[in-house]
Amino acid sequence: MPNIPELKDICTQIRRDILRMVHANNSGHPGGSLGCTEFFVSLYFEIMNHNNNFSMDGINEDLFFLSNGHISPVWYATLARSGYFELAELATFRKINSRLQGHPTTHDNLQGVRVSSGSLGQGLSVAIGAALTKKLNKDNSYIYSLHGDGELQEGQNWEAIMYASANKVDNLIATIDYNKKQIDGSINDVLPMGDIAKKFRAFDWEVMVEKDGNNLEAIISCLNNAKDLSAKGKPVVIILHTEMGNGVDFMIGTHAWHGVAPNDEQLADALSQNPETLGDY
């Protein structure tokens, strides 16, 4: 059974990490990062069979791909808190000579990152490729991926969605961060996408909808169900309803914090809402 209080403490600390990283260089993407904190903690601290002694090939372990690379702060903080690299390195985020680039890259051999992402819409194809190699290698591990909802406006996703079901890529669990917001505003204002779950079903995916995407117990249970649905001939997608900016009252419910850093006062306010649990980096 997952230790929910312990996982909650990790979430709170990672929220602090995200806010401090973004504040420190006055750039980065706090909104989506805060909204996906419970998802990342569930994956890395509960669901995935993974090895923080990193190898690019990741044989016999589950792999994760972040397609919406701009929410790098939550991934970096999660990787560091999972022991992939030193916590102190979080202080270098977006600074010159750092391995923690604005968007994740393999270029500097940062442990935990297997492909560069940032230019949107490419991650699902890459995840499918990794899943196909797992099958060729007779490796029964899972491939997880995360995608923004606005990111689904990129056409390459639909090429990949079509391919994965047609070719029974059933060791893949993709999650859509469904916060209904993108840079220019709400999805419905920018480019309404209708019923995303229905679209995935029409493409013959196994679709799960989790309306409580900032609740650890709900996410863990959802991901476990997704694993049970795997290896049955269909790829699995989770439409994960999240709140952008979750955990900081003035960041919730708006797209305004997609790519904006808090100032000193805002940081202090945000941190006071997320008291230190495991120790700041």
Binding site: M56, D57, G58, I59, L63, F65, R114, V115, Q122, G123, L124, S125, V126, A127, I128, G129, A130, A131, L132, T133, K134, L136, N137, D139, Q156, A160, Y163
Partner: peptide, 11 residues
């Protein structure tokens, strides 16, 4: 994209 992913694991 699939080709890039397939390299992970040695193909």
């Amino acid at each position: 994209g699939i080709a890039a992913g397939m390299t992970i694991g040695g193909k």
